[in-house]
Design a protein around this nucleic acid. Structure first.
Lengths: 194, 194, 194, 194
DNA sequence: ACATAATCGAGACGGTACGTCAAGTCTTACC
DNA sequence: GGTAAGACTTGACGTACCGTCTCGATTATGT
């Protein structure tokens, strides 16, 4: 039973639009609550009411949806194939610096460093992403492909770490071939010796 | 033929020290030219004179200066020993969430996501850190320990990526043992077959 | 139909009060936007919003009203009486260095020297003051008291110039008697010879 | 018996010249020890050594030096000629709004309103200017041209007040003819009756 | 001739205040 | 009660000068 004037969809859209515009025109440096409010013909308070002045969240919402798509566990019967099947698309779609989603991902990660409350939520998002990969590794162990003393978290974090590290530092892209190669490299020492 | 009063080394040191202190205490958000000047008992102009108000340069210079001695390339004659010799101390000292430097490192990484100018400078700091590891891998290839088709960047970024990923997401620590294990895991598939 | 938060009377008053206090405590030299803002517990921006950092205008407003009182043209039937009737009160009230109004007058005059836009406005204020005196002289000419070739502006500016010059340089006061004497001196050569 | 390098006359002249130049170009606001030093190609310390950072003293010294020769008391044997000989050139050269010196004079006067310390120094500059005129009037009294009860200060301040008032308010120029007429007007009532 | 001593230019130093910008909060009137 | 407008305090920005200080270089005097 909320009474009072309902949230203005027009304002919401204008805010997100202004955010994207400013971001694309002048990069992060050109963004400010003041600037967005002015561009969107909106009161500053309206932005604070809905985004708490957190430009990171605003940017993420503006570029949204991107990381929502669930990574379905493939289960091809081979650890290598399973992991490659996850890791290569991630390199191609989610964590490429030239994709719009990258900006959202980088913003989220940055925001999590300064905001403990958000960090906890964000962590579960990562668990969510890592789970299918962990499961693939665990299946490999159960199946006898991988040694029993293998640490699934170590393998998975090596693979994801590579991609995030390069995304965040930006010194090098991860090509699809490199993503695949990273799986081979990481698995090599973990295969059960026949 | 420089005339005029020479640059004060005392001030220079005080500035760099204050920078590191503030960064470790409160992250990037706590940094300001004003704050650094006050903490270092120095005029703001002195900072602008030498760093042009570019906090990025200041921070990077402070960090390089603070970590210079620890980055000597070990060269023990074995790739594994060389990499372990670098990667384990990093896990123990530089990238541990419960260390003061962690806040600094996380803030810097976060700031680099929102500031392209700083990102470029920050990248050079990472090059600086990665160089000794790259060199160790290249020596391993030259020595015949590693296969010739090995991609040094891939190996190094896997190892560093692991640590940064865990630091930034915060879901797990990297123990010294795990750091060492990560070297074994990553090298396993790259050793030259005898 | 002005929307938005209305101007804070409390701040306005605090600013003017702080201005007067500082001025009386330490003279012009003790005044600074920063100082006034601090004393008035007000943001600097608020001062810049309303006074544009123009301390002259601020001081004038603080001492206001003073010079608003209209100088009514007396018209006693005698040029001498008319002029004395204006010039003596001015010497006693408006342009005496030890009066508060003097500070305001000196501030205005000083400000007009550095600000052409204000200078134009200020000039009209002086026209306003000179008009009754010019009229008195013109009446004297019409009445036949004064010669026809007399330049009213010359007479008036001699009389007012004396007072302003002494106010601004501060080497001597103009007593009521001297103000009256100045009228006699100036008119002596302008009387129609009978 | 002072030993050591003697004061550099070249520097001294350069400092005074730079002072006048800056003052005439941009008024008091354009003056600063730093600016003068730069313009004069001189170390700041040299200015502090000789003028103690007191721009007022510097300016007054520069102005007196620049106008010294023109202020010789004429003594033609007639008060009128003496005064006209001073007052007309002043109107033509020193206090004309379209001259470069006008900006300097206006700025100085303005600055004196806001700075008591400078005001005192500045007053001596005016004494310096008024002295020849006072002397001319006193000679007139001694000679019997003027009545004995004449107040020399009143006459002089009327004449100078006219010119300064018009310079500062800017509503009217003082032509050479008007300057001469002002002398006649002011003297008319002071001549000894024969 | 050669030390002594005060000057000179240059310019870095710790500071204060400037005028601007944006942050985040608060207060109106309107819808 | 949400909203646009816009004033509010706060705090950092980058700049300009302040008055002091250290340089190396220069120019006299006094031995």
């Amino acid at each position: 039973m909320p009474s009072g004037r309902p949230r203005s969809l027009a304002s919401q859209k204008a805010i997100l639009a202004a955010t994207v515009e400013l971001l694309e025109e002048g990069g992060w440096g050109a963004m400010s609550v003041e600037g967005i409010a002015a561009r969107a013909r909106v009161g500053k308070q309206t932005i604070y009411r809905w985004y708490g002045g957190d430009l990171g969240r605003l940017v993420v919402e503006a570029f949204i949806g991107a990381s929502d798509e669930r990574l379905e566990p493939p289960d091809t019967g081979s650890v290598r194939e399973d992991l490659v099947g996850i890791v290569v698309p991630v390199a191609r779609r989610n964590l490429r610096r030239d994709r719009g989603t990258a900006l959202a991902n980088r913003s989220l990660m940055a925001h999590a460093q300064a905001n403990d409350e958000f960090a906890a939520t964000y962590r579960t998002l990562h668990e969510h992403w890592r789970e299918p990969m962990l499961e693939a590794v665990r299946r490999g162990i159960r199946r006898g492909e991988l040694r029993e003393d293998v640490d699934p978290h170590l393998l998975v974090d090596l693979l994801l770490g590579l991609q995030w590290y390069r995304l965040l530092v930006g010194h090098r892209r991860v090509t699809g071939a490199q993503a695949a190669a990273s799986v081979d490299t990481v698995l090599a020492g973990s295969m059960a010796t026949g």
